[in-house]
Write a protein that binds this DNA or RNA. Sequence first.
DNA 1: TGCTCCAAAATTGTTAACAATTTACAATTA
DNA 2: TAATTGTAAATTGTTAACAATTTTGGAGCA
Lengths: 243, 243
Amino acid sequence: MTFEALPSARTAELLADQIREAILVGTYKPGDRLIEQDLSDSFGTSRGPIREAIRLLASEGLIELRKNRGAIVSAPNFDDVLEVYAIRMSLGSIAISHACHAQKHGQLDTTIVNKKLAQLNKAIGGNAFAMVSADLDFQTALIELGSLPRITETFQQTAVDISVFVRFLGIRYEAADHKDLVARHIAVLDAILEGDVDKAVGLWTNHIRQSVREFMRPFSDTEIVELFERPLMQDVFEVENAR
Amino acid sequence: MTFEALPSARTAELLADQIREAILVGTYKPGDRLIEQDLSDSFGTSRGPIREAIRLLASEGLIELRKNRGAIVSAPNFDDVLEVYAIRMSLGSIAISHACHAQKHGQLDTTIVNKKLAQLNKAIGGNAFAMVSADLDFQTALIELGSLPRITETFQQTAVDISVFVRFLGIRYEAADHKDLVARHIAVLDAILEGDVDKAVGLWTNHIRQSVREFMRPFSDTEIVELFERPLMQDVFEVENAR
DNA sequence: TGCTCCAAAATTGTTAACAATTTACAATTA
DNA sequence: TAATTGTAAATTGTTAACAATTTTGGAGCA
């Protein structure tokens, strides 16, 4: 059972990429309807491939289908954010642990993750959304080191979710965070390369916890109080209300 | 962002259900090609809905798409099995922990899980595949108590995987296992209803570990030795080679 | 025999027309 | 006025024909 990439990108996937981009760029906003005819007019194809692209985006959770009533762009909320970070923390831990074992047997190919790290360094200080994107790409590459296809795929899905959150719930990446973020990334990678399972997993879970804390920062006190009532906050993230 | 069921089942979904069933029943075996025209002849629809159903099954991992070359039924292997159990263990733990919190606030609706438990009891002793199916349904209902839509969805996907494993890798359910299996199920459910997070999560992880052990039983010594070399075996399942 | 190339067959990819369903809105009725 | 019904417009769902691609199998040739 393999999950390797298809021999070459298909039209529907290219369309899905463009529509996804349009959603993330804000061309289509949460609640907006995606009408097949309009899309096929815009993108210059027939409705068939558009339909396929819409189904693809729906399976990512980016849009919702309603029978005979078309698709609308999904609107994320706080619960979604916490659930997504919880998934990334727990599945990521398994993948990283697996990667450490592979490293001990010298089977780890780090070309991709190194490339993504270089791209992330280059993206820092530039456009905030490009930076988030580079950040997510690096993390995905990190998790891919585990060579666990289902976990990788689920993880990739959560990356799309986070792109949506960043766009629509208004994450802010502040200057101080960037260097710390990259430092934490490198720390996890180094621990994997040392083959130290406990250290790598520990750094990873802390990294996610810190990400959650940073994610909350831009919100109002009322919203933060609301966030702290969520069970995931205590159980998974072990975050204390430090304010 | 909601993940509720669509207002009513669509044709493509019904087709996907039928094709999935045909794969699990063995009509289509791993490696077999699924040809759109053949399927549309068999099921009496045009190729459009069939294409949609094929894409759906591909996103479940049940079949693989090859550009311009059609779909083939996927063949699972041992690594897939371990990865799937690891996912069920870690995401299930989060969902169960969440369910405990909900229970403490009296927000837990147990009608579905109770119904599935009754169905499981009724299925015991009958057809082995029906029993596995009832077992998986109960576990899904258990995880749904967590009200975490993404985790529930990913968990459901792994249920499809396990159905495939059972069919194609030859799990055996023996009489002694059934009662123990149900007893472990009920224990987890009871712990959730007590709102005891640590107890419920502990029982759950042990339950999965036991499932992995039982899964290995029918295999030859050579295969088992191979299984024990997998890192997930030690890291996640903490299974000792007791033979 | 074993290799290359070409053509035909098989199969998926795309399109546009048609069917079915849902929504919107105006006309009708209590 | 408020509710209801009916009709037209908008939109998705389905189909069948056509296009593009890949596979298959054989002819020709060294």
